[in-house]
Structure formats: C-alpha cells, structure tokens
Computed example of a mutant assay.
Amino acid sequence: MLTANIGDIQAVAFDIDGTLYKPLDLHARMMFHFFRFNQFFLQYGIVRSKIHDMGVLDDFYATQAEMLAKRIGCGIDAAKERLERIVYKGLSPFFESIPLCNHVEETFHALHDAGLKIALMSDFPPEQKGGLWGLRKYCDVLLGTETTGALKPSPHPFRVLAEKLGVSPEHILYVGNSVKYDVVGAKDAGMKAAHFEPRWRNLFGMSCRKADISFCDYRQLRKIVLQ
C-alpha cells in the first residue's frame, strides 16, 4: 500500500468497470456474447482505442458510429444500431449478477456518513449497470464520459465531473484500476488519484508511483480517507 498526503478531500469519485467489480467476473459472464460478435468487438475495440486519444469531440456518438461503420463496412445508421444492440443494450444483462469487490458497499456507506460527496464516472453509461448494485443511493453524481465528448484519460470529463460535484479538483480523490486512464487522467485534471491494484503488485512492492494512494483492499482506502 502506497500513501501520500492527500490533504483536504471533500469528494471521492470512482471508476466503475474493473474498480467496483473484478473484470474476470464480467468476462466469464459475457464470454459467449463476445464470441458471437467477436469480429464486431475487435473493430469496436480499435475504434475506442483511437477515440481515447482524440480529445473532445463535438458529437461523440456520431464520430464513433462513423469510425465503426468504415471499419465494419456498413452505413452509419447500421453501425449505430449494432452499437446499441450489441454493446449498450447487449452488455447490460451481464452486469445484473456481478458481485461487488469485497467491502465496496461498506466503504461507500462510511464515506457517505462522513459527509463526503460520492460520484461514479465511467467510459460506459452508468445506467447500463441498472441499479448499480445498491450503490446509487450513496451517489451525488453519475457521469458517463461519452456524454462529455471525451473518454479518459482526457482531463475534460474529470473537469466536468468536478463541476457537477461543485468541488474543486484538488479536493477530489478519484479511484480507479487503470493507471493509464484513471490515475493519469485524474492527475492531469488536478485531482488526487487512488489506484486499485492487484494484490501481487502490493506484495512485490510494485505499486503505482504516479498515484497518491495505491491499495488492494477497500478497507485500506476507507481507513486512509477517513483517518
């Protein structure tokens, strides 16, 4: 566990995918869906990878559909339909039975009771996760970065998040499992960053040095923030 002085934290924001639940739990559930549309997901992944580096787009969904249409050889309207059917609505059922990582809900409860604002921000629509496993009642803001026109690690969605929270970036701690997208994006926007890392990184002393906090158990995060 790596800890720096995080100062006066007034809000804690969390990434969703891979941070609140384990990626393997999703992959196991969507395996047959992925293989059914494996070529689509391959091209979709390439498009998303490029969009991550494109900054703020005037019309995110139009650009995404246009890029995907060119890669899979169809019209833009057909690409939009496939995105909705295969990705946005298609993946939604697989989230219903995914268990949260240990001690997530009790951490949200403790942060909420301590008077901290709580937010969720993901590169995918939060509403795709339905009731968000009972965490919605603790949250002040839910934000999908697509609606801001840019994906992480662009600092733009992080700044939009800060505006919606009504809290200056330097008083926000952003929690995520990706160094490239969560830690770097948050730090570039002026926030503090906490990296949710695999336990083996902690055991071998390989914690992320870019993050203000590195943790592998939500009880550690709760203790650090509320100390």
Results as ranks from 00 to 15, higher is better:
residue 102 N to P: 03
residue 144 G to P: 02
residue 116 L to T: 13
residue 42 L to V: 08
residue 37 F to C: 00
residue 19 T to Q: 03
residue 74 C to P: 01
residue 166 G to D: 12
residue 115 G to M: 07
residue 154 S to C: 13
residue 51 I to W: 05
residue 99 P to Y: 05
residue 183 V to L: 06
residue 138 Y to D: 07
residue 172 I to R: 04
residue 146 E to D: 10
residue 175 V to Y: 01
residue 69 A to I: 05
residue 195 H to K: 05
residue 156 H to F: 13
residue 66 E to C: 03
residue 27 H to K: 15
residue 40 F to G: 05
residue 185 G to W: 00
residue 204 F to K: 15
residue 59 D to S: 14
residue 85 R to N: 12
residue 217 D to P: 02
residue 3 T to L: 14
residue 40 F to H: 08
residue 15 D to E: 07
residue 46 I to P: 00
residue 199 R to H: 13
residue 148 T to L: 13
residue 186 A to T: 01
residue 48 R to A: 12
residue 133 W to Q: 06
residue 14 F to T: 03
residue 99 P to M: 04
residue 189 A to Y: 05
residue 82 R to S: 06
residue 10 Q to D: 14
residue 38 N to A: 11
residue 63 T to I: 09
residue 145 T to N: 08
residue 156 H to V: 00
residue 227 Q to S: 15
residue 194 A to E: 01
residue 111 L to P: 05
residue 51 I to G: 05
residue 210 K to N: 12
residue 211 A to I: 05
residue 107 T to E: 02
residue 35 F to D: 00
residue 39 Q to E: 11
residue 213 I to W: 02
residue 188 D to S: 15
residue 200 W to Q: 07
residue 64 Q to S: 09
residue 60 F to H: 05
residue 165 L to Q: 12
residue 26 L to I: 05
residue 42 L to E: 15
residue 102 N to Q: 11
residue 53 D to W: 03
residue 224 I to P: 06
